[in-house]
Design a protein around this nucleic acid. Structure first.
Lengths: 187, 187
DNA sequence: CTGATTATTTATCTTATGTTAAATTTTACT
DNA sequence: AGTAAAATTTAACATAAGATAAATAATCAG
């Protein structure tokens, strides 16, 4: 749990009691490479913290698999469009490497919000930061060329390119595998 | 203030005291058509509720003006990438029509969170919903053609097309004015 | 109401990315 | 290690959207 507490502290420091309460709704999960952690069609009721490994959220558009995002060590991952609406998700979470996770039951977590405003605040801040990332992603996709987006990824998140198959990276960048390969070929 | 309270109730019903406290940090603002409500370069410390009118957030990319989003009556608008980070915003908010707004001081609002967890919860839920919208927008921009995006807008938000100049709509859709005109010409 | 400005459309040409298919390289399994 | 499967690259051609410029339509100020 230490990694998780350290992660929490970046957003909001919790009291001993709050940490204890959260600990009780967490459980460790190990997932093998390429296995789905959460499958399409189910409502998201778990927030995962990644201790080790890489996750991606993906879905299908016209039978083509699209990667929505990646998450690495010391980050959380959840299908927020389902978590916050209670609707079934059209998306799945898959582990790209053998991974160790901590599963946080979101139903129980949301109950804790009533007793621990500090926990509500913690997750408010976590998701506000994620929201900002998503706003920036809209800008990146919409107004930068595929090549610009690739170069930004290379510069700011090169571990994606080192640890994730390019076929996943391509749809994340909003282009085809062939286009990505062409862009990489230049220079 | 009635419209605002009605809007709040959709997310979280507030006690009398909480409503009173929020009311004290709100003030009415009237803005003429085409005028900027907030300008580029300043840190966002105000959340606006739109009683009447249309707002858009815009910024410049390579000297070209880009519309990030629109907001209409009974919605809030804020430059969250600045609001949640405290960094100056590269974006501006402009009113597309003569408008009546309620300005909520965000510094004071965040202070209220300490005394009123219900207010913190209210805005947590408001921004969670906005976050979900943004996640869906990423999907829309990234994996639908310009024509699909235009048709979706026409179907689900046709007031945008009725009330907003097409030159703003084009960059919102991630295309040029000329492309939008071409797409509209088909059929 | 009229002229001037601004917004929108149309036309032409260019370019980035998509599509399909094949070749090559890498990875995984026995 | 050797083979099959999967991933990546390369090639050739197609297409959607960009760029620029000009024409038309709509809006606004006096």
């Amino acid at each position: 749990m230490n990694e998780l507490i350290t992660y929490f502290n970046k957003y909001n420091t919790l009291s001993e009691n709050a940490i204890k309460a959260i600990s009780e709704i967490c459980k460790p999960v190990n997932i093998k490479k390429n296995q789905d952690l959460q499958s399409i069609g189910h409502t998201c009721r778990t927030i995962y913290f990644i201790k080790k490994g890489v996750a991606r959220i993906y879905y299908f558009k016209d039978d083509i698999e699209i990667t929505e995002c990646f998450a690495f060590e010391n980050a959380i991952i959840a299908r927020v469009e389902s978590l916050f609406t209670g609707k079934p998700s059209r998306k799945a979470i898959q582990m790209v490497e053998n991974s160790e996770l901590i599963a946080i039951n979101s139903t129980k977590l949301f109950d804790l919000y009533d007793t621990f405003p500090e926990i509500e605040r913690l997750f408010r801040k976590i998701f506000e930061a994620a929201y900002v990332d998503t706003v920036n992603r809209v800008e990146s996709i919409q107004f930068h060329s595929a090549e610009e987006r690739y170069n930004t990824l290379l510069k700011e998140n090169s571990n994606v390119l080192q640890r994730v198959p390019l076929k996943y990276v391509a749809s994340y960048l909003g282009i085809t595998q062939v286009s990505l390969s062409r862009i990489r070929g230049i220079r």
